[in-house]
């Protein structure tokens, strides 16, 4: 694949028709006798923003880690379209179009923003030690093309003026956006955002919300997010799944889920749910 076709392929991916369903089917997860997830099933419809919520310790992050292959479920499976993701080694998911951001920013602090975002291009590019070391013409061209795309993505997120800044020198809110930019650099068809608003102030949260909406509307991709900020979730989600003690207790439109008595009980009944993890 030449660099140009890689680019063309990348653009084609953002076509709405190409986005498959992400299906979580009866997933169970146990750690040393503790049941973290129990028969969890839901479907992320193409081109929607789907929120996964629940009190602390409900299993949201575990569910996330199962989806993106970091944890292996003890039961059930996850499918993207017709492809079974479960059992695959995590790095293969990027190639299938699954991108992910992290709750606690997992960037290389001393590398520049561009360098971090370029990591997302890993599975879209080729080249090993020798070709990279010799800076062969096709490697240099590929690097240019993909750096341009990375810059575009940063521009889309409004962080293009920080491309050459080391991540360590960025404010937290901007670093969060860099994490999202890196996930987008994978050219995902499904984007997983793990607590995108955690640690952000009100203004930064509003920016994040409009960004997420923009991702869905402009790129047509599906977004699955784990979030604590109910205002954010109810404002942008097309569909909400609620976990409590590892079980799915509600799944539906935000307005409906919000009134669900069991959801209300899970949030209000568990008074200690606001404890820090």
């Amino acid at each position: 694949m030449t660099a140009d076709t890689a680019r063309a392929g990348a653009d084609a991916r953002t076509d709405r028709a190409d986005v498959p369903e992400l299906r979580v089917e009866g997933v169970g997860l146990r750690f040393a006798g503790i049941t973290a997830l129990d028969d969890v099933s839901f479907t992320v419809r193409p081109g929607t923003v789907h929120a996964l919520i629940g009190p602390n310790g409900a299993g949201k992050s575990s569910c996330f880690n199962v989806i993106c292959g970091v944890y292996h479920p003890t039961a059930g499976r996850v499918r993207l379209g017709d492809t079974v993701l479960t059992g695959m080694r995590p790095h293969r998911l990027a190639r299938l179009g699954v991108g992910r951001s992290f709750q606690n920013i997992a960037l290389s602090q001393h590398s520049t923003v561009l360098d971090n975002v370029m990591l997302g291009r890993h599975s879209l590019t080729r080249g090993g030690f020798l070709s990279g070391g010799l800076r062969l013409p096709w490697v240099a061209r590929q690097e240019r093309v993909h750096a341009r795309r990375a810059a575009e993505i940063c521009e889309f997120l409004g962080i293009a003026d920080r491309l050459d800044t080391p991540v360590a020198a960025l404010p937290y809110g901007v670093a969060k956006l860099v994490d999202v930019a890196r996930a987008l650099a994978v050219e995902p068809r499904v984007l997983l955002l793990d607590e995108p608003a955690a640690g952000l102030n009100a203004v930064e949260t509003a920016v994040m919300a409009s960004t997420i909406r923009a991702l869905r509307d402009a790129l047509g991709i599906s977004v699955l997010l784990v979030e604590h900020d109910m205002g954010l979730v109810m404002g942008i989600a097309d569909r909400v799944s609620v976990l409590d003690f590892g079980r799915l207790i509600a799944d539906g439109e935000p307005a409906v889920v919000q009134r669900d008595p069991e959801v209300v009980r899970a949030y209000l009944g568990a008074g200690d749910s606001e404890e820090q993890q």
Partner: peptide
Amino acid sequence: LARGAVRSRVGRAWRAVRDHEAAAAVMGVD
């Protein structure tokens, strides 16, 4: 050779593995 490689895709993958293995894997690095 080392300088070129460090600035290339390979170098980025190495640093990602160094800084955050799980994130590197999710970004497509074996």
